[in-house]
Design a protein around this nucleic acid. Structure first.
Lengths: 342, 342
DNA sequence: TTGTACGCGTTATCAT
DNA sequence: ATGATAACGCGTACAA
């Protein structure tokens, strides 16, 4: 036999409907589409709900409707400042809406990403935001076979699964190197940590432009799979100077490294920018405040997150953005650390 | 009339049970408590599930069981490095378990926190992690009347709602000031941003110890409700030096400010630590890498998050920790920026 | 605009 | 150890 589970204190849609003197489905409609009710009933349901302190049961809603109001977000890291800005953008856009965020951390593993993707999709999210464009083939086909809006975040590229928002990391790096060229730098080192796909593409940009200028030299490159840190920046510079003592500038694939390089230069009494020009990447807040101020490439992280979430929400609600691929660009912030001629 | 909704491709518990030749409830038990099945059935259900690629429907599970496997986390900020470390700890602890995290951002507002709390609890989370001990009275009574485990995070204090993990911000600040005293500093400034409850308690510690030493002077205090940043650190130091030009040390309520102070000192050709000793708070990674290296108070942020999540999970599963209140302590990391006598 | 009838996929209860 | 039955709270489909 079954059971009796109904606790007396429970406030369900039924209770609200009863107090309002309408049928449960009318009360249900009130919460999803108030416009569909006559003014009288709308008011009655509203006050009944408030009086009883009704809160909808999301599980029941999800089960009955076969969908949720959850936007799944897959990011590679929680620690990286870059992603905290992106996340802030996402939450800012989502918080004002009816949707909520379900966050998962892939830890820079596309296999983990694939696993999480399956998990997410099994719960029928309303939308999905994933990082980057380097999913596994399986992930791709999963994503393609799914009917919710998906935004790929952080970079632009060919073949969007659905929508895409970001910028060209390769071009952004090239722009920074161009700036260093313009300052008279020739022996420009590349320092990279973690070497995730986006850092890799910055590196590709570096290699391309250096080769075009016939200035490429593998000794100028120092990279590591280790996660980035300020301390690591110093260590990488030390390596670089061992391999190529005549280096006259460094492009750091992110700002932590750049700050570490600045400190290491101080330690070694290398003057910045005279003996060593420095450019970072991302333009974290401290870059403009350092002494000397540090050149970097500003990326629109907050906007990326915010707009990604907005695009997903719009698409969920049937208003697909006219542009499937949005390039938010970048700006080379030229500061003292790279200004040799003024 | 009703409807026919059952899509042919759907893999539900029923399909798994059918293939395994057992009843749905037996299959259900397999996923929740495999031990309860006979070996034969266990194997049959397992392979059936794998063969069909079964993924449980969490909405149905939540609806039927009247509970979820979600741990709600309320934090004041996504941007602050402090919280990204805490979050990393939480996710690390939760990811290996059956539970998942539902994150919400209170934006340093206890009213927002109260609102989110209501929202969360309506969905019957398995556990809850909240930041700090300064909830509204309403929040407190909501939390007290709830039957899931709750951990208050980031600081210790009297009257835990349930469990608590953190450290004494007041003592931590006092320890830093003591260290500065020991270095011969007397005119020690306090720089604070945001002034959330934890920064406020650091300030309380500062005031107390300065008064005990008869060294307290309101001109030495510069605070602002603005969010912290490196740039702000420089600005606050400028203010401080206007009010109290004879300042010989600054305690910065967080490390961003300390870095900004360091840069501002360089700009003004104030030598650190000779003319100005500096201490930060939190011991972010860059502190040990700066030139000079920057003194700070190390706090165990990752561990706080990880242990909070672990405590919640243990409590959910009936193994309540013997200690309801865990003090993770702190360490004053004495570095060059404050070492006047060596 | 409102209501009727039923099903969403799972687990609790009770019985064997 | 296993199963039959009902219930969880809501939304869809259709009818009026």
């Amino acid at each position: 036999m079954g059971r009796k589970r109904t606790k007396p204190g429970k406030i369900r849609l039924t209770e609200v409907a009863e107090l309002a003197g309408v049928s449960p489905i009318t009360a249900s409609r009130f919460f999803r589409n108030p416009e569909a009710l006559s003014l009288t009933k709308r008011v009655r349901v509203e006050s009944a709900a408030k009086e009883l302190g009704y809160v909808p049961n999301l599980a029941a809603r999800a089960l009955a409707s076969q969908r949720t109001e959850v936007i799944g977000v897959l990011i590679p890291s929680l620690t990286n400042n870059v992603f905290s800005d992106v996340l802030r953008g996402i939450y800012d856009a989502v918080d004002g809406s009816r949707y909520s965020v379900q966050l998962a951390n892939t830890r820079y593993s596309i296999l983990q990403e694939e696993k999480l993707l399956r998990l997410f999709l099994a719960q029928k999210p309303a939308g999905l935001i994933v990082t980057g464009i380097d999913q596994t083939p399986e992930s791709r086909s999963i994503m393609e076979s799914v009917d919710c809006p998906i935004v790929q975040l952080m970079e632009t590229g060919p073949d969007p699964v659905d929508m895409m928002i970001g910028f060209s990391h390769s071009d952004a790096c090239r722009a920074a190197i161009s700036h260093l060229f313009a300052q008279g730098c020739r022996r420009i080192g590349f320092l990279g940590a973690r070497m995730d796909p986006r850092v890799q593409r910055r590196f590709d940009g570096y290699v391309a432009i250096m080769k075009e200028a016939s200035l490429y030299d593998p000794r100028l490159v120092v990279t590591t799979p280790l996660p980035t840190s300020v301390t690591l920046g110093g260590a990488l510079l030390a390596d670089l100077l061992t391999k190529a003592p005549d280096t006259d500038a460094v492009f750091c694939a992110n700002d932590d490294l750049a700050l570490g390089v600045l400190f290491e230069c101080r330690r070694r009494h290398i003057s910045v920018p005279e003996q060593m020009a420095i450019s970072g990447f991302n333009d974290l807040e401290f870059m403009a405040s350092a002494v000397p101020t540090l050149t970097s490439v500003r990326t629109n992280r907050y906007e990326m997150g915010r707009d990604a979430a907005t695009m997903v929400i719009e698409a969920i609600e049937g208003r697909r953005p006219e542009q499937r691929v949005v390039d938010l660009g970048f700006t080379v912030m030229e500061r003292q650390s790279s200004m040799r001629r003024t």
